[in-house]
Structures are given as C-alpha cells and as structure tokens.
C-alpha cells in the first residue's frame, strides 16, 4: 500500500474514533466495580434519558402534594445527601409533622425494602407512601394524575418518555424510580482508597480498623448497610407510638426493629436514627459506647459492649467523614431541573 494511502487510512480511523467518542453518551447507570448486583430489575424498567428527566421533574414538583406546597425535595435535599437537614421528623403540608426521620436517598437500586420498617417492598411503590400519608403530602395518586393531565408540561414529558402523552400511575412511579436509580454515591475518599487512588491518613486508618471491629456487621461495605432490621438499643420514644417493623410484619420478634441505614454521606445526613433524635455523630457514638440497652438489641455485636476511648471516637468519626461523596452532593444532574423546564417553556 502506498504511504499516502496508509496516512489517509490512519487519518480516517482517528477521525472515526474521535467522532465515535464524542457521540457516545455516558451510560445512565453504572454499578461500581466489586459492588453486589443491584436488587432493582432494570429489564422491567429500562432506563432512558427522557424517563430519568421526567422522574427528576416529578421529584422537584410540589404537584405531588394535596395543596401543591411539598415536593419530594422538601424533605430530601441534594446538599444533605437527599436527607432533611436539621429536622428530626419529616414535614408535611400545613406544617404537619410526621413520625420518622427522612433518610438519605442514595444507592437505592441496591435496596430491597424501603422505609424504616421495610413496609414498602419495591422502589416503584415507595413514592406512594409519602404521597398518601396525611402527615406528609396528603394526596392520592389518581388525583395527581388528573392534575398532571391539566398541565402543559407533563403530557409533553410523558410523550418524550413513553412515546405517547398518556399519564398513568405506573408510568409516574416508574419514572420517579428511574431518577432514584441514578442517585449512586460511590466517589468518596473511602472509594478512592479502595480503588488505590488515595490513602487514608493514620487517623482515618485507625478509624477504619475500629469501624471494621465494631460497626461493619450491620453497616457492611461497600453499601455500608446490610439492609437488615435491627434494634440498636435506643430507648423508645413513647410520644411517637412507633413500634418499628412489627407494625407491618405482626411478628413480635420485630418489635422496635428499624432498617440499618447506610453510613455513606453521614457527615451531611444529620440528624440520626429513625426519629432523628441524635443531632451529631459525637452523640451517636456516645450512645453506642454507653447508652445501649443490651436487653433489647438483636445484634450479637451490640450485645458485646463497645468501648471506645475519646481518641478512638475521634478516629472513628474521621473515618466516617471519608464516606462523604462531594461529587454526589454537587452533581448537577441531580439538582433542580431548571434547564429541562426552561426548554419546555420555550416549546
């Protein structure tokens, strides 16, 4: 082959690769390496950009509440890992107060059961609970669908997402799931260390060892939860009439059991526990160190007394702070969908 032809061929291949790379869109969902298989079956709800966008608009839209004042985002703000900063219990319409703390929303594709007591069995059905709870959004999904049908934007968004403008409850819920599935937090310092891209400080490393000895049975890596239901020995708040998982399972052994929450982004997801009783991590560690009612705990690890010195507590907290994922907290693809809504307004 003449040299000139060779050069042309190489040039053509380079151009093809460059255009290919530019045209290639980033995958909509990536399960991080060495993580377990997601629980959510994406084959039954295949992700698309348009459906994720629709879910994102719904997440930020107070149309889901009866008086259009409360959105999902009201109790799940991105900058606090989609938890509710400074609020022990969830807030509803007309200043109503719920009975449980709004948890962080992340890595939900790996979560088999939802809510603190696991009463919700599928991510698709989770949004129904706050939507219908009289202390939260106090709305009905059939009415939400009717309200959406009257808007200008939703028939368009459903058309873009599903190929026709029909708004159904199932489509609404599956779209919210799509956005929820994209909320993957796997870029903390801890993750960089595990990928051999960074190193713990001496203090963080000591904290990591303490974590593995005392906490990891329930807060199992890499999700930092084993998704089980446990009692961690906190006294019952008699004002809330909340008995935990027993309310849905009717099994007396489930009394006062609550789901083990993830520790990822724990720096920003205060206050802690199912009723938000602990305002900061120092108080949480104080409880595990000296406040556990060992008669009421189920976990064998908690029945053994956790004894940490003041320095060890500081080291453990230093490790917990390595679970903060700033990429996640400031990822603009999770934020208020201003651009989507602006483009819709132009059409």
């Amino acid at each position: 082959m003449p040299a000139m032809k060779k050069i042309h061929l190489v040039f053509f291949i380079l151009v093809a690769f460059t255009f290919g790379a530019l045209l290639h869109e980033a995958p909509l969902f990536i399960a991080p390496k060495n993580w377990p298989k997601p629980v959510y079956d994406l084959k039954k709800n295949p992700l698309s950009k348009a459906r994720i966008n629709l879910g994102r608009v719904l997440f930020y839209d107070p149309i889901l509440s009866r008086d259009s004042t409360i959105s999902c985002n009201s109790c799940h703000s991105q900058y606090t890992a989609f938890a509710h900063v400074d609020h022990a219990l969830s807030h509803g319409i007309e200043n109503r107060i719920g009975t449980r703390n709004a948890p962080a929303l992340l890595n939900l594709a790996w979560m088999p059961l939802f809510m603190w007591d696991g009463a919700i069995n599928h991510l698709d059905m989770q949004a129904l609970a706050p939507m219908s709870n009289p202390l939260e959004m106090d709305e009905k999904i059939d009415h939400v669908v009717k309200k959406m049908q009257r808007t200008k934007i939703y028939p368009t968004l459903f058309y873009q997402a599903y190929g026709d403008s029909a708004i159904t409850g199932a489509r609404l819920l599956k779209s919210i799931s799509q956005f929820m599935i994209t909320l993957v937090s796997s870029n903390s310092k801890y993750d960089s260390v595990m990928r051999h891209q960074a190193q713990f400080t001496k203090q963080e490393l000591n904290g990591y060892q303490l974590f593995k000895t005392n906490c990891s049975t329930c807060h199992t890596e890499p999700l930092f939860t084993n998704n089980t239901f446990q009692s961690n020995g906190i006294p019952v708040d008699t004002s809330l009439h909340d008995f935990g998982r027993v309310s849905m399972s009717h099994a007396s052994t489930d009394s006062f059991l609550y789901k083990v929450p993830t520790l990822r982004n724990i720096e920003f997801s205060a206050p802690y526990m199912h009723d938000g009783r602990f305002k900061n991590l120092t108080v949480v560690l104080k409880h595990y160190n000296e406040g556990i009612d060992t008669q009421r705990v189920k976990s064998i690890d908690l029945k053994k007394h956790i004894v940490l010195t003041s320095n060890e507590k500081v080291d453990l907290i230093a490790f917990l702070l390595t679970l903060t994922d700033r990429h996640f907290l400031f990822d603009t693809s999770y934020s208020y969908p201003k651009k989507i809504l602006t483009n819709l307004a132009k059409d």
């Binding site: 039954k44 709800n45 009463a119 919700i120 069995n121 599928h122 991510l123 698709d124 059905m125 129904l128 609970a129 939507m131 219908s132 709870n133 009905k140 999904i141 059939d142 669908v145 159904t168 409850g169 199932a170 489509r171 819920l173 599956k174 799931s177 849905m248």
Partner: peptide
C-alpha cells in the same frame, strides 16, 4: 413494582402505607 391496567395504583386498590 408499578404495573399498568387494572393493576395501576390509580385504581385505588393498592395500599400506600404498606406495599
């Protein structure tokens, strides 16, 4: 999860506080 038709949650035959 969420299903269409007669099983759509808008039909009022799905519990919301517990799946």
């Amino acid at each position: 999860g969420a299903l269409e038709g007669d099983l759509d949650p808008t039909k009022g035959m799905y519990w919301t506080w517990q799946s």
